[in-house]
Amino acid sequence: MGYNDIGSGYSTEDGLQATTHYIPIPDHAQYKYVIDIQGVGYSSRLKLLMQLKRPVFIVERDYHEFFFPFMVPFKHYIPVKRNLSDLIPLIKWLNEDEESYKMIVHETNRFAEKYLSKEYAIKHLYQTIAKYGLD
């Protein structure tokens, strides 16, 4: 394990990097992959990570945003078990499969353009209110 050049962090033998300081969302684009792990609530950064033109690994979660029903695993994101036991094998798979890497980046970008805009969020909210109505 050796220290990396992004601050107080380290690199593992598998080439993974970890850091102990905050990294602004746009700076995540310097990495080949991004991962979203939910904390004690929902992760508000997922919709931002999905716009970085990087494959997004999404750890199983209890809370979902409105756009989750439209997402397809291994097309718009890479699903990861809650205990992270499959994370390293999934990274190795994507490292070895350039076609899948490019396809996921392309499809995630298309998904983000369609579903992750302010306009779509407002439209979805309007449709939800209209569907369930207000008495």
Results as ranks from 00 to 15, higher is better:
K118P: 05
A130L: 14
P26A: 12
K32H: 10
P73V: 10
Y126F: 09
G133N: 12
E96H: 12
G39S: 12
L48C: 04
K102F: 02
K114C: 07
I35W: 05
P89T: 06
R110K: 14
I23K: 01
L16Y: 08
H28N: 13
F67L: 02
L125I: 11
D27K: 11
T128N: 06
L116R: 01
K47Q: 15
F67A: 03
N83D: 15
G9T: 09
R110G: 05
E107Y: 06
S43H: 08
G39L: 11
K131D: 10
I78Q: 08
H76W: 02
I88D: 03
T12H: 03
Y33V: 09
F68W: 14
Y42K: 03
Y115G: 06
S43Q: 10
D86G: 04
V80C: 06
S8R: 12
M103G: 00
Q127V: 02
R61S: 12
E113C: 07
Y77V: 00
K92H: 08
S85H: 15
E13C: 07
V59M: 09
I37C: 10
L84D: 05
F57A: 02
Y126R: 11
D27V: 00
G15W: 01
T20Q: 09
Y22E: 01
T19G: 14
I91C: 09
I122N: 09
K92D: 14
D27N: 14
L87S: 01
K102L: 12
E107M: 12
N83H: 13
T108S: 14
Y63F: 14
L94F: 03
H21D: 05
I37T: 14
E60T: 06
Y77M: 04
V40M: 08
P69D: 08
N95T: 07
T19E: 06
L48T: 01
I25S: 13
F74H: 11
Y120P: 08
Y115E: 05
S100C: 07
E65I: 00
E60P: 00
I78T: 02
D27G: 02
V80R: 08
H76S: 08
I88N: 04
M103Q: 13
H76A: 08
K32L: 11
D14L: 13
I23T: 13
V56T: 15
D14N: 08
E98R: 13
Y42D: 03
Y31N: 15
F67C: 03
N109K: 09
R45T: 09
A18H: 07
D86K: 06
N109P: 00
V34I: 11
A130T: 14
F57C: 05
V59N: 06
G15C: 02
L49Y: 10
K131G: 01
L16I: 09
H76P: 05
H64V: 03
H64K: 10
M50N: 03
Y33I: 12
P26G: 11
Y31L: 00
S100K: 14
E65F: 04
G15H: 03
L46G: 00
